[in-house]
Design a binder for these strands. Structure first.
Lengths: 186, 186
DNA sequence: ACCTGAACACCGTTCAAGT
DNA sequence: ACCTGAACACCGTTCAAGT
């Protein structure tokens, strides 16, 4: 890639990061080009669709999501506490940008999605938590299912601008439902 | 309301019902006006915003939701079966139109929403199920919380086009988390 | 009173002309 | 090769002119 192209590519990513954070993932793309100081055509050359731009932005997001999963697995406490840590961490990361939860959850079952690799990373991070919790979880649960539930809760938070006191009881319901019957109520 | 105005109002509702069903809740409004055979201005006179149009359409939807709640309460079986019936019925109604789940869930905590009355009806239907299940449910649960969880699951189904086999385990997680600890695992 | 539809605004997307 | 930005298309919304 030519030096000026690389520079424009980076300027677009930085501008998109700012614009999407301020105005959500449906923000006008011409604002992204304008703030990056490039023509509209340059944006479309580098990122043919909005989701391609989003996909490039999401690398850092996935890194944080992986870190949240590792942190949850490493929690020194009960299975319940480890699971709750992942649900809290996962929801917090996935709701970082308005609309991201819906896009990621939709991409979980769609290989054709432009952000399919990011959704797969979300499912894999969930899968690592599932494996770490092992027999403490209800049998048959897999990473995709857990990611869907975390994504669903994240969408509720995203749509409703829920604060901590509204979020906590919903997370509790999810945790109790996810734990193996013998552990529930302990 | 003048006779011709009433006629246009009804034609717009019928056209919107068809267009929203075919193309989702974000379908172009000029298509609604075109199919109703009226000018664009007439649409905006009767329904200043898209959500006002949606709100008018949703009356029938709320009636079906109420019926689903009554049916769940009347189920001759365990609390688990009654709750599962409501979750299945609620999700089925709320996902009837693509995008409806997200709109309704967002409106659950927003009195300013143009569909606030419909969201309130959703919460009340959930609340009736909560009351009917009484001590079988985890303590502290209210209709809004249950509606949020049903809405979250409905958004997951809506976003991912889930089939029955993918939906069932997620509904099971929710049911187990919602039941009182002493009942879980029975 | 209510309706029509042309007109304007906004934004996504393309492409001819430039460097 | 890559970039620019004018141009086109689409759709939401308004409003002057009609009935």
């Amino acid at each position: 890639m030519r030096a000026d192209a690389k520079r424009n590519y980076d300027k677009l990513l930085q501008a998109a990061r700012e614009v999407f954070r301020e105005r959500g993932l449906e923000a006008p793309l011409d604002e992204v080009a304008r703030r990056a100081g490039v023509g509209a055509g340059t944006l479309y050359r580098h990122f043919p669709t909005r989701d391609d731009l989003l996909n490039a932005l999401m690398q850092a997001f996935i890194d944080r999501l992986d870190a949240a999963a590792e942190a949850a697995i490493a929690v020194d406490g009960s299975p319940r506490e480890r699971l709750l840590c992942w649900i809290r961490g996962g929801v917090a990361e996935v709701t970082y940008s308005k609309g991201a939860a819906a896009k990621l959850t939709a991409a979980l079952g769609d290989d054709e999605s432009r952000i399919a690799t990011k959704a797969a990373a979300f499912a894999q991070a969930s899968g690592r938590v599932v494996e770490a919790l092992g027999v403490d979880l209800r049998p048959g649960l897999d990473g995709v299912q857990l990611a869907r539930l975390v994504g669903g809760l994240a969408m509720v938070v995203d749509q409703g601008d829920l604060d901590e006191s509204s979020f906590a009881p919903l997370a509790d319901v999810l945790v109790d439902g996810l734990l193996a019957p013998t552990v529930v109520g302990s």
